[in-house]
């Protein structure tokens, strides 16, 4: 019976490619990975947005309106609703002058209680050191 922690490090811009969306949906799929594992084994994802990846976290995405596709915002909220750990790099937000108020921090309208964490790169690096495997998107 063991748990493996997987770090999903997202550095891709939203919508330019599907990489960042796939990262979040892969992380969410951890909820059903147990069907392939031995009893008691599990995977626990941590999602970290760094570099250009922090643009994925901006509130008010209109992809459904303009392209008819689910927004990355919705996927991030689904991740928070499932209590996944979501970290957003504070230095990169600052670098792009993205205010905390503009960033997706919760899924409260869906009943979620877990909050995203705005963390320094040092804290994110600690998390990266702590996981079993890193996956860069």
């Amino acid at each position: 019976m063991s748990k493996k922690r997987l770090g999903f490090i997202i550095k891709s811009l939203p919508y330019k490619t599907e990489a960042s969306k796939l990262a979040v949906t892969h992380a969410i799929s951890s909820q059903t990975a147990e069907i392939y594992l031995e009893d008691g084994d599990s995977v626990e994802p941590v999602i970290c947005f760094i570099g250009d990846g922090v643009f994925n976290c901006i509130k008010g995405q209109q992809s459904m309106k303009h392209y008819g596709i689910t927004s990355i915002e919705q996927h991030i909220k689904n991740a928070l609703l499932l209590d996944l750990k979501v970290m957003i790099c504070s230095e990169d937000l600052e670098k792009f002058r993205i205010k905390k108020e503009s960033v997706i921090m919760d899924a409260s309208e869906m009943g979620g209680e877990t909050l995203a964490i705005i963390a320094s790169y040092t804290e994110i690096q600690k998390e990266m050191n702590a996981v079993d495997h890193l996956l860069f998107f």
Partner: peptide, 20 residues
């Protein structure tokens, strides 16, 4: 996608190569 995560569970090394 959960197949991939389960594979990561039992892997000695996990590598992502390329995005789109």
């Amino acid at each position: 996608m959960d197949w991939h995560l389960a594979s990561c569970f039992s892997a000695d090394r996990v590598i992502m190569i390329g995005d789109n």
